[in-house]
Write a protein that binds this DNA or RNA. Structure first.
Length: 170
DNA sequence: TAACATTCCGCGC
DNA sequence: GCGCGGAATGTTA
């Protein structure tokens, strides 16, 4: 099930499975659906309720506010390792950041920082699963699959500064 | 096996 | 201090 959300930052695209929100894409950057599970039908009323929650949470997040109640997230597309990484990311508080290496250490796998980066790139639900709050070790931006400009914009809207500089000016 | 959204160390400027 | 090159690293398709 595919729906869109209009925001002041453009039109986001969402996909729902029977288990919940399965994918969220940036405007102008629509990705193909991940796997067949993401296309499975959910009931009409479930999707409607989830979509309202997703739209509200997304708009809050873009405004730099707490997202509030999230719909159930269907992360069954990911591998075990990826779900672990995404789980840690969801626990990063608003306005805070972690490095790829710190997440690897949190999973008791120091040295897996590169793998953590790969898992971030595979995140099907950016913004709501805050992959943009993950930076390189030297407090530099690192990368972002949706484009670095999005990462800068999201960090700036949360009031995060890097080495005393606003991400938008980097 | 090759590719990564990394990190660390050693160099030269 | 900053930038660059190279090596080690875990996970994935």
């Amino acid at each position: 099930m595919k729906l869109t959300i209009a925001t002041d930052a453009g039109k986001f695209t969402t996909h729902y499975s029977q288990r919940g929100l399965a994918q969220l894409d940036f405007p102008e950057d629509e990705r193909p659906c991940y796997g067949e599970k993401a296309n499975a039908e959910a009931t009409r009323s479930d999707v409607k309720r989830w979509h309202e929650l997703t739209a509200a949470a997304l708009k809050n997040a873009l405004a730099g506010k707490e997202p509030g109640t999230l719909p159930p997230l269907d992360l069954s597309i990911g591998t075990d390792f990826q779900r672990e990484v995404w789980g840690v990311m969801q626990r990063i508080a608003m306005g805070r950041t972690m490095s790829y290496g710190e997440i690897a250490a949190a999973l008791r796998k120091p040295g897996a920082s590169r793998a953590v980066g790969a898992a971030c790139g595979a995140n099907p639900i950016p913004v709501l699963v805050p992959c943009h709050r993950v930076l390189a070790a030297n407090s530099k931006l690192g990368g972002f699959s949706g484009g670095l400009n999005w990462k800068r914009k999201l960090l700036a809207r949360e009031g995060i500064y890097l080495n005393g500089i606003q991400p938008t000016l980097l």
